[in-house]
Design a protein around this nucleic acid. Sequence first.
DNA 1: TTCATAACTGAAGCCGTACC
DNA 2: GGTACGGCTTCAGTTATGAA
Length: 217
Amino acid sequence: VVDLTAPYVSGFLAFEVPFLVEAVQLRAKEPGLLPQVLLVDGNGLLHHRGFGVACHLGVLIDLPCIGVAKKLLQVDGLEKNDLHKEKVQLLQAGGDTFPLVGDSGIVLGVALKSHDHSTNPLYISVGHKISLETAVRLTRACCRFRIPEPVRQADIRSREYIRRTLELASPPALGRERIQKVKRPEVCPQRYSGEPASEGRPPEDHSPGPGADLDAP
DNA sequence: TTCATAACTGAAGCCGTACC
DNA sequence: GGTACGGCTTCAGTTATGAA
């Protein structure tokens, strides 16, 4: 469990990146546990500034990262409007996709029907050192259900941990009551000491770097 | 025209419910 | 029993409305 010092703001998930980096580095200390690729519950290039949490994390740990969002972040003219819903309905089987093209003409990501029986798609975007095509293929391969297994397991296990921790902290009082959301600090705390990378500006080149070998067959 | 207030928007977490 | 999904919640920012 970590203590966030910044309030939650949509599109500012990058404030959580230091803790994610720490988690990955802890894993890396044990032989064979350093991940080859990370699926991040958030967005990569599909972001207000073109540099979401998946990009931040990927750059800092220098590993391929994929942004996997469950809801559409409405940026660059992308909207969950009738046209979008129409496109979603046209996705027939698991693995079907359509590109998310912003007003700027840039392909920001892909909507992926991850499972035959799911109605809502996943929104895949490039984070770091990986092509969009490979990101989609890899995400699809991880989908036993709608949510990719790594993201799903992280969600399930974290909830389980929180539930157990809270029960241990105050067993009778909490009981089965709804877990109250942690109240945000009233005053915005001092800015995180680590300066946000390049003021959220996207990198000049979105293509995977020379070190990326994930696109190799 | 300016100010105050209300209503609305957006993303994500949590929970209840329907479904397989 | 396990899963997906919709609805409700949070708060800050934006927009609309009405009063002075």
